[in-house]
Nucleic acid binder design. Sequence first.
DNA 1: GAGTGGTCTAGACCACTCA
DNA 2: GAGTGGTCTAGACCACTCA
Lengths: 245, 245
Amino acid sequence: MKPDVPVPAFQPLYRQIKLLITEGLENGRWKPGESIPSEQELARHFNVSQGTVRKAVNELAQENVLVRHQGRGTFVATHATERTQAAFLRIVPDVGPIESLSAELVDCRRIKADAAGARLLDIPTGSPVLRIRRVLAINGRKVIFEEARVPAGLFPGLDSETLHSHGCMLYSMYESVFHVRIVAAEEKLKAVAADADITSIMGLPTASPVLLTERVAYTYGRRPVELRRSYCDCSEHHYYAAITS
Amino acid sequence: MKPDVPVPAFQPLYRQIKLLITEGLENGRWKPGESIPSEQELARHFNVSQGTVRKAVNELAQENVLVRHQGRGTFVATHATERTQAAFLRIVPDVGPIESLSAELVDCRRIKADAAGARLLDIPTGSPVLRIRRVLAINGRKVIFEEARVPAGLFPGLDSETLHSHGCMLYSMYESVFHVRIVAAEEKLKAVAADADITSIMGLPTASPVLLTERVAYTYGRRPVELRRSYCDCSEHHYYAAITS
DNA sequence: GAGTGGTCTAGACCACTCA
DNA sequence: GAGTGGTCTAGACCACTCA
């Protein structure tokens, strides 16, 4: 019993089902925050057993693309809610929890992709890119200065006003306004001496050591859609990582 | 059908099986690098279905405590092989792969646990702790200075000679000599200015920014067994992290 | 009480490994 | 060819949610 839709060969059935579900997410068939059909329904629709659907959904849930709720259903993950707002933020206070998180826009400009950035974003060098710079405050204290770059083509009409009206929270705005959902990211961290721009914005002594994080963020299908450089003042905050392996 | 061994209540069967398997790993019933019994055998032994064993083993495999090999069996993960030697190292060169990794011992001393360290290691303040300091070189270049602290009681007789005879590779030595297997860790990262000790050992300019990583490493059952502070020269290397959520 | 996901079983067949 | 883990099915019952 195979689903009656063309799928790549040499894949276990449940991977094919996973791909089909991912396609439904990509093309907006099921939207962030909404529920997808029940396992039983999906099994009937794809003409496979519930166990096979379950295995596909489990993998997507583990990748935080879907969220399961026993008794309620399975939902498309979202950056829109308070709780999932900062799911990608790895900076935490040395003591105590994050009680508030706010962002202040520095500027938003249209620039041209340089060679390195274009390669990472998989777009032509020189194509239009939006550069968004902001300062993040944790519990009222300015901690992070960051610069994000995204292909302008994916975010038509994005400007300072769009940013202000969303409190300058990027991933929830990407998702709700432009239907671009961030599902994974890779980060490279370095300790560097802050340059004058950064020390003046953050109110730090000249050449303070700051934690530089370079991120590539991906949407469904591991397509890169954002580059980000963050500079974190580590005097009362740190980057948290858990290792299993 | 329940296993005929006392287990905590209110746990799904497969979690109870998982605990029983973990106990077998802890008490050395199955040793790192060895294979555990097949799913069929475990299912017979615990008197549950193969599917339930499979679910328990899957979770342990995902936590990198066990390693599955189709057609060969399921093996206890180990730090002893070349490939798994540096499974916890997150520092990589900015360009190119890690071709060689070597460690040079600075010193190994017996000290007393300070209050903060004792709390993290869950031992009494003032109890004996071994402090191991070493320099890690990646592709022949000194990149990381680090200091590890472990409860002396867990590592009887550990000294410079033990370290030298294992090339100063800690986790494989913990495992093969002292039967302490590291299975998980938490890390906090900060950018700091290097002090004189570090700049002289690493050959860096005064007060260079370095990446400080503070690690707590855990053995089975999430029992903390090592604290570590690493200082990384980030001029040609970075810390790599993947984010999913 | 109907519907959801979570657990558990039993059994089939497949892909891979190794003697 | 025997033994291993990997996939898939079908069906049962449970825990949780919500009207």
